[in-house]
């Protein structure tokens, strides 16, 4: 279990993580979701004691990272697959990690086998593709057979086969009762990998809960209504307590489901041309929630986002 309380990190005047509190429980894959630059990597580095929190605290099973005895036996992490010496072989990289943790040599062969790197184990890590480097990083994370695993954007830059492999792998690790905490900036990825979510934007906690809760919470269902008497219908809907927004030749109604709208129209004898419930997409939910907390945004994004979301809806 990982517990963060009031975790804060300033780099000079920049606030990377702002009073962040969350818990990650065992036996599940917990997604750590946020746009690029939201503070995910910084948070992970603080969990591992690499960066010192400006304020607050983070503990693993009640202990600070630096108080763990032989920490690789408790926590394994893959933060950046390229953090290996390019002129050192994959096996040698694992050998020194194992030596510092007093792990038997056969454990190195085991993890190499587990990630499928046995054939290239004696090649220098500098020549590895990104996918191979990720596998080496995962092997290093698994070396001490830890209860807690951290992965920072593990599917970045991987081919579909690699993505599928990592996804399955994490489920397996969680099924074995481990705590798996994996960050991503892609909600669609998290929806397929994680059961729980910790969502942050600009270093602040936006949501913690299950993936389903997050989507339900984030996607406000609306109903699209077309009618030759839109204006009149709008007045009745407002009077009945619904929220409406003008969508060109249609109305987007919130706070009232489609049967209720249909009955109201029938009672007022208003002709309807269309009455269709709209289900928000995951990405739309994500954008809605983190909308004002994106660190780097192109000028157009704010305007384009709804259209993009809408086109995704159409396809769905």
């Amino acid at each position: 279990m990982i517990e963060a309380t009031g975790l804060t990190k300033h780099y000079g005047r920049t606030v990377a993580v702002d009073n962040l509190s969350f818990t990650v429980s065992e036996g599940k894959v917990t997604g750590f979701l946020g746009p690029n630059g939201a503070g995910k990597s910084t948070t992970m580095r603080m969990i591992l004691g690499l960066d010192r929190p400006t304020a607050g605290d983070v503990r693993i099973d009640g202990q600070h990272y630096w108080d763990l005895h032989q920490p690789l036996r408790t926590v394994g992490a893959l933060l950046d697959a390229k953090w290996v010496h390019p002129n050192r072989s994959a096996r040698a990289h694992l050998r020194w990690l194992a030596a510092a943790t007093k792990l038997p040599k056969r454990r190195i062969d085991e993890v190499l086998d587990l990630v499928g790197l046995t054939a290239v184990a004696d090649k220098n890590a500098g020549g590895f593709s990104l996918g191979m480097s990720q596998r080496l990083g995962i092997a290093a994370a698994l070396l001490g057979d830890p209860k807690v695993l951290l992965f920072d954007e593990p599917v970045n830059g991987l081919d579909p086969e690699g993505i599928l492999w990592i996804r399955k792998f994490m489920h397996k690790l969680a099924d074995e009762g481990r705590t798996v905490f994996v960050s991503s900036h892609l909600l669609s990825e998290m929806a397929q990998t994680a059961q729980d979510l910790v969502v942050i934007g600009r270093g602040k906690l936006i949501h913690q809960g299950t993936v389903d809760e997050f989507i339900a919470h984030a996607t406000e269902s609306t109903v699209l209504v077309r009618s030759p008497e839109l204006e009149k219908l709008g007045e009745y809907l407002l009077a009945a307590g619904a929220g409406i927004s003008d969508d060109g030749d249609a109305l987007r109604v919130s706070g009232m489901d489609s049967p209720a709208i249909g009955e109201l129209a029938a009672a007022r004898q208003i002709t309807l041309h269309e009455l269709s419930p709209q289900v928000g997409s995951l990405e739309q939910a994500f954008i809605q929630l983190t909308g004002d907390s994106v660190e780097y945004r192109t000028v157009e994004t704010g305007r384009l986002a709804p259209d993009v979301a809408a086109s995704q809806e159409e396809r769905a």
């Binding site: 591992l48 004691g49 990272y65 630096w66 953090w83 990690l97 510092a100």
Partner: peptide, 18 residues
């Protein structure tokens, strides 16, 4: 300095937090 250059210093401090 090469440990800082290649990021392995983080693995080092991860394995030996002291």
């Amino acid at each position: 300095t090469s440990e800082y250059r290649f990021g392995t210093i983080r693995s080092t401090f991860q394995v030996v937090p002291h």
